[in-house]
Amino acid sequence: MVETCYIPKDLAEALRIRKETGAHPIAGGTDLMVSHRRGTGVVPKFPWPVMIITQLKELQKIEEEDGEVSIYAGSTCHEIEVAELVPYQVRKAASLMGAQSLRNLATIGGNICNASPKGDLPVPLIMLDARVELVSATGKRQMLLDEFIDGPKRTKLQDDELLARIIIPQPKAPFTYLWYRKIGTRRANAISKLSMSAAATVDTHGIIVDFRSANGASGPKVARSRAVEETIIGLSVDRLAERLPAFLDAYDVILSPQAMPQYRRSSTRRMLEFFLSEVSKRPDTTIIE
């Protein structure tokens, strides 16, 4: 009889099962168990074999090496929220997902591999140029998270691979200003209608030496454009105001004109305008709220 559900003891076994059967991993189950539920008293049914990876210790750590922070795929949102190693916006995004009971189950690996346009963690991660490490029984490879997520519910994960960890590189200079905002369907326990993560580095002369911004829930995948960001990099904060309208127009183009375009666009515009005008005042606080 064909197994429908495997429970591997360790990562090696999981990778072997994955290679042999293509079984889909269930980590926290908060996406999969819900999308395949069949009602009270009925066992959820999947169109493919599955394996439970909740118990894999190898996937449950958060560590720093050579200035890069690795969040392993099985780390829960709660673990990320309380991990001091993890950059502010990622912690903040994790802390605003669902409620405590969800954050104790939901994993970063699941959030990324689920590739929902409304998923919260990819937004700050992509802004931070995070990479993913994919492992299989035969090897491993890395790529930019932005490339890994192909589109709504689509990733470049291959049939024999698992996501092992997410690697967040250190920016050249520490960011001087940070912004994160999630607009949910309500004030807690809510899916994003829109989220935005932004960061700027202003040097001692008032020159913007780095700027990044990414939007979630505003298109098929996270919206970010290095080219648009570069239009204000190198600028002195004093000249930001005059360049702002052109920048905002250019940014607007990278948002997808999908459902509720007006609301997402205008809110994004207001948030960016607000963040940058705060930046141009060069306040002492890093986190802009």
Binding site: A99, T185, R186, R187, A188, N189, A190, I191
Partner: peptide, 11 residues
Amino acid sequence: LSDYIIPTSMD
């Protein structure tokens, strides 16, 4: 209940 939004304790 993920689509029909009723108030939570935070709202």
